[in-house]
């Protein structure tokens, strides 16, 4: 009979090693259930194609000209929409016995959540890559060149990572994955549409224009546009970084506390 038990290793994994192990878990899940990338592929492709060809003629006179305006917007839009699934996935994980096991192990308690968000970075980058690739194939030209495009993708991904903490918070408060998804989209539609993603706010009624101008998504899109056009100022970039930091500072600890208390 083989010995079932073995002597322990030096000690449990530290916070960084544990988080990376959970990020690896996310990637393994994508490998085994590639369908879960449906949103990451579907949303960017759909938004880029649909809005360009549907609104292009009406808004800018030609689809080609509209694409120049729209593409940085759909980049932000697609990645921001994909963030909702971070909350959906966490909520679904919590309802399984798996998380009970993780939480009864002597590891850094937030590691499963932090690791999952690290894994989600890959999803954001994939969504961003699809929008940019499709945009170029449709005739988009970036005056800021490759560095501008990469900087815009990096900034959008940073903002998305910050925003995903709000969905993990929601994922811990709401009861079902469907509820997280529904509320997520109810919040995201006005947040992304009342912005400068599709049209310049100056065409909106004054009260709506004020909202659109104050919307952090507008600032993100303005900065992404400027980066891709090669006209960004450090003031714009720092503004988005500051917003991302502010969202993280509020919602990351909130997620952690709710996760620890979750029973």
């Amino acid at each position: 009979m083989t010995t079932l038990a073995a002597p322990p290793p030096g000690g449990p994994a530290g916070p960084v090693a544990a988080s990376i192990t959970f990020a690896w878990r996310s990637l393994l899940k994508i490998k085994h259930v590639p369908e879960q990338l449906g949103d990451v592929i579907g949303i960017p492709v759909l938004f880029t194609l649909l809005f360009t060809y549907l609104f292009g003629g009406a808004v800018s006179g030609s689809t080609h000209q509209y694409l120049q305006y729209l593409l940085p917007g759909t980049l932000a839009l697609a990645v921001v929409f994909v963030t909702v699934y971070s909350g959906v996935t966490l909520n679904r994980d919590l309802t399984t016995g798996t998380f009970d096991r993780y939480r009864s192990m002597p590891i850094w308690r937030p590691a499963p959540v932090v690791g999952a968000l690290i894994g989600d970075l890959g999803r954001y980058l994939l969504a961003a890559g699809l929008v940019v690739g499709l945009g170029f194939a449709m005739g988009y030209r970036a005056h800021g060149g490759a560095p501008g495009v990469l900087a815009a993708v990096a900034l959008v991904t940073l903002f998305a990572s910050a925003l995903s903490w709000t969905w993990t918070t929601l994922g811990l408060v709401l009861r079902t994955p469907t509820a997280v998804m529904n509320l997520g989209f109810v919040v995201l539609f006005p947040l992304t549409f009342v912005s400068n993603v599709f049209v310049a706010p100056r065409t909106m009624p004054a009260w709506l224009r004020d909202v659109a101008d104050a919307n952090p998504i507008s600032h993100l899109v303005t900065t992404a546009r400027a980066l891709m056009n090669g006209t960004a100022t450090s003031h714009q970039v720092l503004g988005v970084i500051a917003t991302s930091a502010a969202i993280t500072i509020v919602f990351a600890p909130l997620t952690t506390v709710l996760y620890q208390r979750r029973q």
């Binding site: 878990r25 899940k29 399984t96 798996t98």
Partner: peptide, 10 residues
């Protein structure tokens, strides 16, 4: 746990 505490997708 009473409900499978292993990951179904792995």
């Amino acid at each position: 746990g009473q409900f499978a505490s292993v990951d179904e997708d792995l």
